[in-house]
Simulated assay, not measured.
Amino acid sequence: MHRFTCITIIFTPLILCCLALSPPPTTSETRPKVLLLHSYHTSNPWDMSVEQGVLDALADEYYIPDENLAFESFYMDTKRRTSREWKEDAGKMAREAIGRLRPAVVIALDDNCQEYVVRRMNTSGCAFVFAGVNRDPEEYGIITNRENPGGNITGALERERFPESLAFMRRIVPGIKRLAIISDASPTGAPVVQRIKALAPTHGVTVVDSLETDDFTAWKDFVTKIQTRADALAVVVYHTVKDDNGTHVPADKVLAWTTSHSKLPDMGFWPWAVSQGLLCSDAISGYDQGYYVGTITSYILGGQSPGDFPVSAPRTGQPCINQARADELGLAIPAHLTKTAKLFPAMTARSPVSSPPD
Rank of each mutant, 00 (worst) to 15 (best):
G99F: 03
Y75H: 08
Y140R: 11
P137M: 11
A90Y: 00
R146M: 14
A94P: 02
E147Y: 06
D89F: 14
A94M: 09
A94S: 15
N152C: 11
I153A: 10
R161Q: 12
D110P: 02
V106W: 04
V105D: 09
G175L: 08
N148V: 09
R161E: 04
L157Y: 01
T154W: 01
R171T: 05
D136I: 05
E164I: 03
I143T: 12
F162K: 06
R100F: 09
G155V: 03
P137I: 02
F168T: 01
A108D: 04
N148T: 13
D136V: 06
V106N: 10
P103F: 08
V105S: 11
F162I: 04
E158I: 06
D89K: 15
A97P: 00
R119A: 15
W86P: 01
W86A: 10
L101K: 15
G150T: 08
A131R: 00
E139Q: 14
N148W: 07
F130C: 06
V129E: 09
A97E: 15
E115D: 12
E96F: 08
W86Q: 12
A131T: 11
R170G: 01
A104G: 09
N122H: 11
R135F: 03
M76V: 04
R100S: 14
I153M: 04
E158G: 04
C126F: 05
R119V: 01
V173D: 07
A108T: 12
I142Q: 02
G141F: 02
R120S: 11
E88C: 06
L166K: 04
L166F: 06
P103R: 03
N152K: 12
I172D: 03
I153F: 05
A127S: 15
Q114F: 06
R161C: 01
G132Y: 01
F128K: 05
R81F: 08
F162M: 08
G175M: 08
A108F: 05
A167D: 13
S165M: 02
G125F: 03
A94I: 03
Y75N: 02
V105N: 04
E158K: 04
P149D: 07
R146S: 12
R102M: 09
A97M: 13
R146K: 15
D110E: 13
E96Y: 09
T154S: 14
G141R: 05
N145G: 02
R159L: 15
T78L: 07
K79M: 09
E85Y: 09
K79N: 13
R80N: 15
V129M: 03
V173G: 07
T144R: 13
R135Q: 13
R80Q: 15
M76Y: 04
I143R: 03
N145E: 13
T82H: 03
D110R: 10
R80W: 01
E85T: 12
S165R: 01
G150H: 04
G155M: 02
E160Q: 12
E138Q: 10
G125M: 09
P103Q: 12
A156E: 03
E158W: 04
N134A: 09
T82S: 14
M169P: 00
D111E: 12
E138H: 08
I107R: 01
A156W: 00
G125C: 09
E147R: 14
A167C: 05
N148R: 14
